[in-house]
Amino acid sequence: MLIEKGKWIAVLGGGQLGKMLCESAKRQGYKTMVLEPSKAACAALEADLHLAKPYDDKESLVYIAKNSSVVTYEFENVPSESIDILEENGGYIPQGRRPLYISQHRFREKSSINNLGIKTAEFRAVTDKESLKKAVEEIGYPSILKTSMGGYDGKGQWVLRNKEDFEKAVAELSDREYILEQMVDFQCELSCIAVKSTDGSVGVFPVVENIHKNGILHITIAPARISEEVQEKVKEITKKIIEGLNFVGPLAIEYFYGKDGEIYVNEMAPRPHNSAHYTMDGCDKSQFDLQIEGICGKHLEDPKLIKKSVMLNILGQDVERIEKAELRANEKLYMYGKGEAKTDRKMGHLNITGENLEELIKRAEELAK
């Protein structure tokens, strides 16, 4: 279905991703409404209408269904019941609930990827001490225990390198589902985002390299410092997954490029992604532009990298220093308009563009000190 300019787009979620989606939608000639419980939501700064209600508020969902032409989401923990309410009341949400169902649970996520014939690290389901003990016996050390649902930026994870780590993790287990994954000995961490339109066309962005600190994305390097052959292989896998799972809208996939030369899928998210913020200045179209185009039924092509780019995440502890820094003409700062600058809270990002990738990385690290 082709959505004409001037129509209303509804976004479930009102964080920085929702804010940037609304900015892109506005540039493309659409009106936006956002459903986000927090009255201080940064997406409210750009949306034409902010519904400050819970994600499962039926009255708000019915309003969205009746008054928007298309609905999308900006985070993967939208309750699936909300999708049902929207659809039952005539709402058009082309992504549907399936991407949420698969990506909200790590065991389902990795199983669905393996079913497509694509590699992940070896993994096992864990529910208690006995199943964890068996999983460790089968997978061995080092491995990583994660909650199957929830958890982000390193939260809800335990690295197991020995029996002492095992006992510590056992002591902290609660009554919930977990997944134990073999740790991949990797050369680097990569990611790639693709968007599938409602017309079936797919646009795949360039492959980027990610460097994390304390489990949080620190910098993204575009393009990734890998061979063109590996870049193309990652793009092919990304397209195979979004088409094989029959998703519509955005799908961001994080990869490990192993020292054994293999490519392993780590995680995926059916939404815009932190590692693709560089696209706002480094590509001819941003990830937000493509998501809006895709859900509105436009034909998509692969976006092009027009400038080498490095994206630096701005966390709460970085805000004062970055805001005092003398930025250059090739450096663009995006602050999200959030409230308190708490430690490790994502407050903004800085895109640095140029020709010499190593110099851009060096500059990003200088600004990060």
Rank of each mutant, 00 (worst) to 15 (best):
A10V: 02
L17Y: 08
L21G: 06
C22E: 08
S24F: 10
K31G: 00
L35Y: 07
P37M: 08
P37C: 10
A41M: 04
L45P: 06
L51P: 05
D56Y: 15
D56R: 06
D57V: 07
K58N: 06
E59R: 01
S60Y: 05
V62Q: 04
Y63V: 00
N67E: 00
S68C: 01
T72N: 02
E74I: 04
E81A: 15
I83L: 02
G96T: 10
R97E: 14
Q104P: 09
R108M: 14
R108D: 12
R108C: 11
I113G: 13
N115L: 14
I118A: 08
T120I: 12
R124Y: 07
K129M: 10
L132Y: 08
Y141R: 12
S143T: 13
I144M: 15
G151L: 07
D153V: 00
D153H: 00
K155W: 05
W158G: 03
V159T: 12
N162G: 07
F166H: 11
I179W: 05
I179N: 04
M183D: 06
Q187L: 08
E189K: 08
E189R: 05
I193W: 05
S197W: 01
D199L: 01
S201W: 01
I221F: 08
A222C: 11
I226H: 13
S227I: 10
S227V: 07
E228N: 05
Q231V: 00
E236R: 11
T238I: 04
I242H: 04
L245R: 09
Y257K: 13
Y257A: 09
D260H: 11
D260S: 11
A269N: 06
A269S: 15
T279E: 10
Q287H: 12
D289P: 11
C296T: 14
C296K: 03
G297N: 01
H299S: 15
H299F: 14
L300N: 10
K307Q: 15
N313E: 02
L315R: 00
L315P: 00
Q317D: 05
E323K: 12
E340S: 05
T343R: 07
K346L: 07
N356W: 13
A368Y: 08
